[in-house]
């Protein structure tokens, strides 16, 4: 498999505090890879550096072999990286389909068009994307009345508009009910399989991670302490100590 994303020795420090300390890894084409770790381990900082929201203190990021370190989010998006946010960032003053149309307007480079009516543009195409995430019935509702899980799916549709080769998803299932989590990750897995997209995601729900991720990386205090298959990570004593815990408290109860 070819490498889509390669990260070399990525580092970020804020006045004396080192948030990410020399992280290196890669994501291959068609791979669904999870990045897990305790809160404050540097997952979001890592993500924000990959997507250009934050400038790394040191290290390099390569997309398809070309360097994207320090580029602006919109430049990285142009190169084929889509992202969804931990706290959804949809446009509250637009309808569901207009959110997707907005992404398509940007995709077709029509942002500085003054003549057309925006809500007439690319409506059919937008509807296709809504169908992918099963939101077609809510197309004309205002985004502000959508349930949280639907917003997450809408973000996924938006991220797909530019036909990305890599999707970065920051806690895609946070705040969702267990069943909805599984449905969303199943949808993501389908997209990975059908469209050959690669996905890198952070997650706290271990059921989701172990059920769907092809590979798992564990970040702790800004450094990677594991990178491997589900079984390797689960049985890694260091990972158990800092992150997974013994699980005794709940297991006893669950099997009682």
């Amino acid at each position: 498999m070819t490498e889509i994303l390669r990260v070399e020795n990525l580092k970020k420090s804020y006045d004396g505090f080192i948030a990410v300390n020399g992280v290196s890894f890669s994501v291959k084409q068609g791979e669904l890879k999870a990045l897990i770790g305790p809160n404050g381990a540097g997952k979001s900082t890592c993500f924000n550096m990959l997507m250009g929201q934050l400038r790394p203190t040191a290290g390099e990021v390569f997309l398809d072999g070309s360097r994207i370190t320090g580029q602006k989010p919109r430049e990285i998006w142009r190169r084929g990286v889509g992202r969804t946010f931990q706290i959804t960032g949809t446009y509250q003053s637009m309808t569901v389909i207009e959110n997707v149309q907005m992404a398509l307007i940007s995709h077709h480079r029509r942002l500085f068009s003054f003549g057309a009516r925006a809500w007439r543009l690319y409506r059919d195409e937008a509807m296709d994307f809504l169908r992918t995430v099963d939101l077609q019935d809510q197309a004309d509702r205002p985004c502000s009345v959508l349930a949280y899980g639907d917003l997450k799916r809408l973000e996924l549709a938006i991220a797909l508009c530019h036909r990305p080769r890599l999707l970065l998803m920051d806690e895609p299932t946070a705040g969702m009910a267990p069943q909805a989590r599984i449905a969303l990750m199943q949808l993501t897995a389908d997209i990975v399989r059908d469209q050959g997209v690669s996905v890198l995601f952070t997650e706290h729900d271990m059921d989701v991670v172990f059920a769907h991720a092809h590979h798992i990386m564990v970040l702790n205090r800004g450094a990677l302490i594991a990178d491997g298959s589900a079984a390797e990570v689960r049985n890694n004593p260091k990972v158990q100590e800092v992150y997974l815990g013994g699980g005794t408290l709940f297991k006893e109860e669950a099997h009682a």
Partner: peptide, 23 residues
């Protein structure tokens, strides 16, 4: 009502989403 006006509102509603979709 034109795409430009929508892009303007997009930047107001969620600047980081707008940047992440190439605006």
């Amino acid at each position: 009502h034109a795409p430009f006006g929508y892009a303007l509102r997009a930047g107001r509603d969620s600047p980081r989403q707008a940047e992440a979709m190439g605006i």
